[in-house]
Design a protein around this nucleic acid. Structure first.
Lengths: 224, 224
DNA sequence: AGCCCGCCTGAATAGTTGTTCAGTTCTTGA
DNA sequence: TCAAGAACTGAACAACTATTCAGGCGGGCT
């Protein structure tokens, strides 16, 4: 055996893999999932089309990993925001606001990850992604229920419904289109957060209070 | 001119067009939008593939018309249910319940119409469909607001969010899977309707009352 | 009956992309 | 420097379906 992967080579391979993933992510953020085609992604990553297949068995695997990566980032952000909140209701508000802000700050990517038609099967990956995020929201709802702040309910279904509402209202085809304006963006985030909190049973007045509290820290996320 | 379309021919042409659309609808209901391919649809409709193109300029047009047709049916059902309700809040509850029941009774078709990846561009048609349904819901929310039953709000955004919540919770990939059972189906419909009503500001207790009232007439729709 | 014209057929066409692979280049260890 | 093998290249391949069109078929007019 006269050839072994030296540390330097391992690093280069890892860098290349990251570059391909990053290229895919950039392409998705710019042109949606339909722009994530092997040849263009390879060009972006400065490799040949064939090389992509040395790192990902198929396009489906590439996109699945992209979805998983974005999903991990989002989940971490949600946890960070919720854990920083003073109580279970605030945590729920923070979690919802975080989802809203994230989704809005990368609408095209979010749409691609969530719902855009793709020519390969990535349902499993999307399912896993939603399951994770929905699970996190569900556990936050659950905490608020246990604390006696909300009526008992099917938290899994509620979490799913909440995410559906956020996504449809903010990145779906009927989403308002003037969200470049920061003020409008904040309004939209507040509105959907308010809807979400009321949906799970928070009283209107209290929900309004939670919303403004949650939006303050979330504003810092918009820049990030 | 020695050839003119006789009445009989006109009828046959119309029947064939309907047959093709019905075949497409059946295919979508059975196997989702991916099953709506020209050749299989043509077989179902007892015509040759080429004939489909005498009635629809392209596959995109065929699917667009399918979407429009289903959308029309749904809109009519919503209006019927809402108009039969005694007051604006009941009407809203009835509208939401109707959407939920419809969507659940044809989950595969609904998923195809709403969100399933299609290999041709039908975004315009889907957009129009959502706009119609969302507009109807929005006007029902608006009526309840004007009647003083709900707080003032962005009704268009609220309607969009409501539909997103319904769709994601009932036909999305995280939707519960035991909905064949009528009792579970009713539970799911009630749960999401309750969420929707609370989201727009109906008090929990009142919302629960509206839900049970709305589900009674809607039960008859399940069979239809 | 006979001619005409348009509808219908379905095999062939065409365009799009994911995937492969033979040949080339680069890296390693002696 | 060189042999060996891994990594990379990119043009060719493959598969899938929407779409077309030349030729047949049948209904409509005189």
């Amino acid at each position: 055996m006269v050839y072994r992967r030296t540390h330097q080579v391992v690093k280069r391979l890892a860098a290349r893999r990251s570059a391909i993933l990053a290229a895919a992510r950039d392409a998705a953020a710019e042109g949606g999932m339909s722009a994530v085609q092997i040849a263009p992604v390879a060009v972006r990553a400065n490799v040949a089309a064939g090389t992509v297949y040395r790192y990902f068995p198929s396009k489906a695997d590439l996109i699945s990993e992209l979805i998983a990566e974005v999903s991990r980032d989002e989940l971490a952000a949600i946890r960070r925001a919720a854990d920083a909140a003073p109580g279970p209701s605030s945590a729920l508000a923070a979690a919802v606001t975080t989802v809203a802000v994230h989704v809005l700050s990368q609408r095209r990517l979010a749409w691609g990850i969530l719902a855009e038609p793709v020519d390969v099967d990535v349902t499993a990956s999307r399912l896993a992604s939603r399951r994770e995020i929905a699970g996190e929201i569900a556990s936050r709802i659950d905490a608020a229920v246990r604390a006696g702040h909300l009526p008992a309910q099917d938290t899994a279904l509620a979490a799913t419904a909440l995410l559906g509402a956020l996504h449809e209202a903010l990145v779906g085809p009927l989403a308002p289109d003037n969200l470049e304006d920061p003020a409008r963006l904040r309004d939209a985030v507040q509105t959907v957060t308010l809807l979400a909190l009321r949906a799970v049973g928070v009283m209107d007045a209290r929900a309004r209070g939670l919303v403004v509290q949650a939006v303050l820290p979330a504003k810092t996320l918009v820049g990030a």
